[in-house]
Deep mutational scan, measured.
Amino acid sequence: KLETFPLDVLVNTAAEDLPRGVDPSRKENHLSDEDFKAVFGMTRSAFANLPLWKQQNLKKEKGLF
């Protein structure tokens, strides 16, 4: 399991300012399950079932792209 970080560490943070080991294209993977659901309004599995373009739009909207 990946290390999780608080939302404010990941949202609207440039790649070079992210904690070590965080993939800038997969910031959402480093949210706790609770934060993930609070941000996206759905579970990880529901998010994973969305088309890629919709996932990317949601990530942009939430500052996690």
Rank of each mutant, 00 (worst) to 15 (best):
T43G: 09
H30F: 09
K62Y: 09
L18V: 06
N12W: 07
K37L: 15
S45L: 13
T13P: 07
G41Y: 05
G63V: 01
D17S: 10
Q56R: 13
T13Q: 08
K62Q: 08
K27E: 03
A38M: 14
E3A: 12
L50D: 00
N49T: 13
F65Q: 12
F40S: 00
F36D: 00
L50W: 02
E28S: 02
L2G: 10
L58A: 05
A14I: 09
Q56A: 13
K37N: 14
N57K: 14
N49E: 12
N29K: 11
N12C: 14
F40K: 00
E3T: 11
P24I: 08
K60Q: 11
P51E: 07
K54S: 10
V22T: 03
R20T: 15
Q55W: 00
K62P: 01
K27W: 05
L10N: 02
S45G: 11
R26Y: 11
L10H: 05
T43V: 08
L18A: 04
G21K: 05
E61S: 11
F36W: 02
D33A: 07
V11Q: 13
N29W: 13
F47Y: 06
L18Q: 04
G41W: 04
K54P: 00
Q55H: 00
R26F: 12
L52I: 12
D35Y: 01
K59F: 05
V39S: 04
L64K: 01
V22E: 03
E34H: 10
E28H: 03
N12V: 07
E3S: 09
R26Q: 11
T13H: 07
K62R: 09
E61C: 11
V11D: 03
A38D: 10
F65T: 13
K37W: 15
N49S: 14
F36A: 00
A38L: 14
D33G: 04
R26C: 13
T43I: 08
K62N: 12
K1W: 10
R44P: 05
S32Q: 04
A46R: 10
D33I: 05
N57M: 15
D35I: 05
R26K: 11
E3D: 11
W53P: 07
S25C: 15
K54A: 12
G41P: 00
K1P: 13
E28Y: 02
D23I: 05
K60G: 05
K59G: 01
K37Q: 15
W53V: 09
L10R: 02
P6F: 03
P19L: 04
E3R: 07
L50M: 09
